[in-house]
Nucleic acid binder design. Sequence first.
DNA 1: TGTATTTTTCTTGTCGACAAATAAAATACA
DNA 2: TGTATTTTATTTGTCGACAAGAAAAATACA
Lengths: 234, 234
Amino acid sequence: MTDTDNNSLPERKRGSGVKMVYAILRDEILDLVLPPGSPIDEVQLAERFKLSRTPIREALVRLAGEGLIDTLPNRSTMVSNIDFLNLHTFFEALVLMYRVTTRLAAQNHRPEDLSAIRGFHEDYAAAVQSRDALAMIATNAAFHAAIAEAGRNPYFTGLFRRLLDEGRRILRLYYQSYEEQFPQRFVDEHAEIIAAIEARDVEAADRLGKAHAEQIVEQVQKLFTRNNKLEIDL
Amino acid sequence: MTDTDNNSLPERKRGSGVKMVYAILRDEILDLVLPPGSPIDEVQLAERFKLSRTPIREALVRLAGEGLIDTLPNRSTMVSNIDFLNLHTFFEALVLMYRVTTRLAAQNHRPEDLSAIRGFHEDYAAAVQSRDALAMIATNAAFHAAIAEAGRNPYFTGLFRRLLDEGRRILRLYYQSYEEQFPQRFVDEHAEIIAAIEARDVEAADRLGKAHAEQIVEQVQKLFTRNNKLEIDL
DNA sequence: TGTATTTTTCTTGTCGACAAATAAAATACA
DNA sequence: TGTATTTTATTTGTCGACAAGAAAAATACA
């Protein structure tokens, strides 16, 4: 965990350091390369990225702002835990944002939005075909983020992106233990959603978005209860 | 603007500097002491707070994370502008969050929440009585934030707080040019909302929250169009 | 006089070092 | 041997300084 990618170019532009550290750390957290509770050591990161502690620190402040890491004053910093006890609040917010963003996309999308959405739709279908669970997680999130962007409400897309990030962590946690997969059904639902958006059928988009979200939540909850049962059985 | 409060104690605890700078700057931005577009100079702030640039910088990174300031790479930093062209997206999100948080409060509140809510309700009524517009803005936001907390969904409360902050800026902008006031009607509506929450009447809470939000949005919009007309007339 | 190029100025981004705060280790004492 | 106290070690928070980038000013040139 100490020396994974030291082969990065020693030539870096001024100001790119923070962004790079932020992006890499963010991905490692969301992909559970850094699992919840992992200690974050500034000095270690400074050595790894060959930077001083200052830009590392700035990246950490940003991550803390998004709730991805927790900082104990004067003491350690660690990757924030997933609050399993309050998962229902996460699902609650997720379902509503699925609904709202799909509805707004039907209302406000422009032609160019649809091609972006269709692109991610195809990526997702390909991931399902090849049974690549991690690709499914990523492309599904990208698909819905694109729909949210087409809805053109930055307040909603902001919250939704955060929820999708957190979902990426939760799903990854699950899929690393069990080789489950999203069913073909989700691909079909995505196609229906696209059709509703294109037809500017606001009510249908709302309904489909809600149903789709509830499907996903239900599946995740099913997987989790099974997961917990197995853990208890050990 | 250079030497407003230099009379702060020279004794500061380690780590309190960032929080202090963050809190003060945040308030100054939301109260329009620092209007949109104001340049933010790190060196100047460092002198003002008698700190080095490092903690100032950390506070600024946080503020940027919340969208309160905009940073041009390698160049200036300034208080973020209010996007008047897309105010409707703001109102859209605000109304939905009013609804959702009020609904959830009716569902999930605990006895101790109600006393907090009632406290802010009385503060608001007092502000209306004394025709103190700025106090109305602040206490109204606090009232609804308390309701959101009672709803116990951190994702919603997070977004809602940001919206209330932005609303504080918008209203302040308005109320500094015209001595308008929130009508007594809002006090009554607040009382109705409290009653619905206490009775755990979820549907009524939802309906009242929505209606209340729309009232506020309508009033603000009315004020703005009048404002704009006057400006055009000049 | 107007435009292109160089120089200067000013602000930011990064660095290495030091001091405070806390935890861990070591010592004293019963 | 077990607890309280001191000492050491480790990590964070802050500092002052320096260099890179970009705008503004100054200069050269037509």
